[in-house]
């Protein structure tokens, strides 16, 4: 029996995913600060949960989870600027993955999402400082977004494998 049979099950699954995403963001923050060699670099671990939520629960749930997770992370880490960065980047990447979910494989959608996320971060940084010159690091950030997106896509596939009762909202993760 799939986990998403009725509204209550969906709701519970969304809450669990939100909790896991919150924990992952905090781990991500800690790990990323420890190994920071470039500004704005993040593993994007919480993106696994966005991706999973998008594929199993659909766009509205994925957005809600992102919203709750971003606010809670901002509260817990006391960093309000990061809220703007994670919300815009996260929302844009979920939208791109949503658009691509039916067309390409899960891993390719995840790679695209990672790239979108990093592009949005640069865009927000440019808007925030009103200095377009800061887009200098864009190629590096796009490359790293692709690599981390690939890794997160593989992790998401592994999660899907471990939960064989998952139904996909948007077709399959093949192609």
């Amino acid at each position: 029996m799939p986990l998403q049979d009725n509204k209550t099950k969906k709701f519970v699954l969304a809450a669990v995913l939100c909790g896991v995403a919150l924990a992952l963001s905090l781990v991500d923050n800690a790990v990323s600060s420890a190994i920071a060699f470039l500004p704005g670099f993040k593993l994007g671990l919480a993106n696994v949960m966005s991706l999973y939520a998008l594929y199993t629960l659909g766009l509205p749930y994925a957005m809600m989870i992102l919203l709750a997770r971003s606010f809670l992370t901002a509260l817990l880490s006391g960093n309000l600027t990061m809220l703007l960065f994670s919300l815009t980047g996260g929302a844009a990447s979920i939208l791109v993955m949503f658009a691509l979910a039916r067309v390409v494989s899960l891993i390719k959608a995840s790679v695209s999402g990672g790239i979108t996320h990093n592009c949005m971060q640069v865009l927000v940084a440019v808007l925030f400082t009103s200095t377009p010159q800061t887009a200098y690091y864009l190629p590096v950030l796009i490359g790293m977004g692709a690599v981390s997106g690939f890794a997160m896509g593989v992790i998401c596939r592994l999660v899907v494998r471990k939960m064989p009762n998952t139904k996909f909202v948007y077709g399959t993760y093949e192609k």
């Binding site: 790679v111 190629p139 796009i142 692709a146 690599v147 896509g153 593989v154 596939r157």
Partner: peptide
């Protein structure tokens, strides 16, 4: 089913190569 398909790797590698 296969975890990672060759096209996924090619897709990522091309993007990374272009960026580099």
């Amino acid at each position: 089913d296969k975890l990672i398909k060759p096209s996924d790797i090619v897709f990522t590698a091309v993007i990374v190569a272009v960026c580099i």
